[in-house]
Design a protein around this nucleic acid. Structure first.
Length: 278
DNA sequence: ATAAACGCCTGACGGC
DNA sequence: TGCCGTCAGGCGTTTA
C-alpha cells in the first residue's frame, strides 16, 4: 500500500516522535532497544527469528532514512530494514500508554525508555530484515526519483533502453524506486501519457513531461502527508486530490471526459482517455 | 527481455 | 443475515 510519499511521511513522523494521534512524543533517534517481540515469523526475511531477537537488544537507533519504499533504521551494529508492502504500518506508543497488543501486530520493539515501535500488518505481506550491509537488500533498486541524479536525460535514456509498457516499467523498482499503483497513474495522467505506451517510443518532450509529472505528484503527496485509503488510515490527505486514481466515471479535472478504469499489467489503472491517448 | 499467472494474506464491499 | 465473488497502495517465483 504505502508508496514513496507515505513511507517518507512515516519516516519523518518517527524522527519527530509523532504519535498516532499526531501529538508530539520522543524521537526514535537515540533510543536503545531493550527487547524485541515477533508475533509472525514470516514477517522476517532475515536472519532467523532467534538471531534477530538476540541481536537487536542493546542497539541504538542512529538515523532514520528512506530508500524507495523501504524504511531504513541505522542501528549501532546493523541496519533494520522494513518494507510495508500492501497493508503494513508503524506506530509509536509512549511508556505511559497501555501495552495492549492490537490484532495484526507483527513486531514490537521495546526501547529502554519505555517507548514502543509497533509493526502492524493485517495482510502479512510486509517484510523485515536485519543486516550488516543494506546493499544486500537495496542494491537492486533504481534511482531515487527526488534525488538530483535522477535527471530528465537519465530518464529518457533509461526509457529508450527498454521496450516495455510505461506503467509496468514505472512500477518496476529496479527501473525507478518508490512509485506504486496510485502515484504511477497520477503521474501518467499529469504527463498526458497512456500507460500502455511503449517506453522506447517516448519522445524527449514526452519524457520531460513524465519526469516533471513524477516529481510533482510525489512532492504533492509528501506535502499532504501521503494518501490514506481503505481501512488503513494514516492521517494523510492526498486521497482528496487524486486526479484519476479510483475515480472511474467521474469527470477528468482537465477536460471533463469520464475517467476510465482499465487493467494494465494485472493492476487496476485509471486514465482519462482524452488526455492520455494511446 | 518481456509478460502473464499465481502465491502470499486479511478485510471491505456489493450482489443475491 | 450469510455466502460469494471481487477488489485492494506490493513483490517474488514460475512459466511462457
Amino acid at each position: 500500500m504505502p508508496e514513496l510519499p507515505e513511507v517518507e511521511t512515516i519516516i519523518r513522523n518517527l524522527r519527530r516522535g509523532c504519535l498516532q494521534d499526531g501529538s508530539a512524543g520522543v524521537s526514535l533517534i537515540g533510543q536503545t532497544v531493550h527487547s524485541a517481540h515477533l508475533f509472525w515469523n514470516r514477517s522476517l526475511s532475515s536472519p532467523s527469528a532467534a538471531e534477530f531477537l538476540q541481536r537487536l537488544p542493546g542497539q541504538t537507533v542512529n538515523d532514520l532514512t528512506r530508500r524507495g519504499k523501504f524504511l531504513v533504521f541505522g542501528l549501532s551494529q546493523d541496519y533494520l530494514l522494513i518494507h510495508l508492502r500492501m497493508s503494513g504500518d508503524l506506530r509509536l506508543e509512549t511508556a505511559g500508554e497501555s501495552p495492549a497488543l492490537r490484532k495484526h501486530d507483527r513486531l514490537v520493539l521495546v526501547f529502554e525508555s519505555g517507548l514502543r515501535l509497533i509493526f502492524h500488518d493485517p495482510r502479512k505481506f510486509g517484510r523485515i530484515w536485519l543486516v550488516q550491509d543494506p546493499a544486500t537488500v537495496l542494491g537492486g533498486l533504481g534511482p531515487e526519483p527526488l534525488d538530483e541524479d535522477f535527471t530528465v536525460e537519465s530518464l529518457y535514456d533509461r526509457l529508450q533502453a527498454r521496450r516495455r509498457a510505461l506503467k509496468p516499467l514505472l512500477l518496476d523498482q529496479s527501473f525507478l524506486a518508490g512509485l506504486g499503483n496510485i502515484y504511477t497513474d497520477e503521474a501518467l495522467h499529469l504527463a498526458g501519457l497512456h500507460p500502455n505506451r511503449i517506453s522506447s517510443s517516448i519522445s524527449r518532450e514526452e519524457s520531460g513531461r513524465l519526469w516533471n509529472a513524477i516529481r510533482t505528484v510525489l512532492e504533492e503527496g509528501i506535502r499532504r502527508n501521503g494518501a490514506s485509503i481503505d481501512w488503513v488510515y494514516r492521517g494523510g490527505e492526498y486521497q482528496n486530490h487524486f486526479r484519476v486514481y479510483g475515480r472511474a466515471g467521474e469527470a477528468c479535472s482537465v477536460c471533463g471526459t469520464p475517467v476510465q478504469r482499465l487493467v494494465v499489467g494485472q493492476r487496476g489503472t485509471y486514465i482519462c482517455p482524452h488526455c492520455q491517448p494511446f
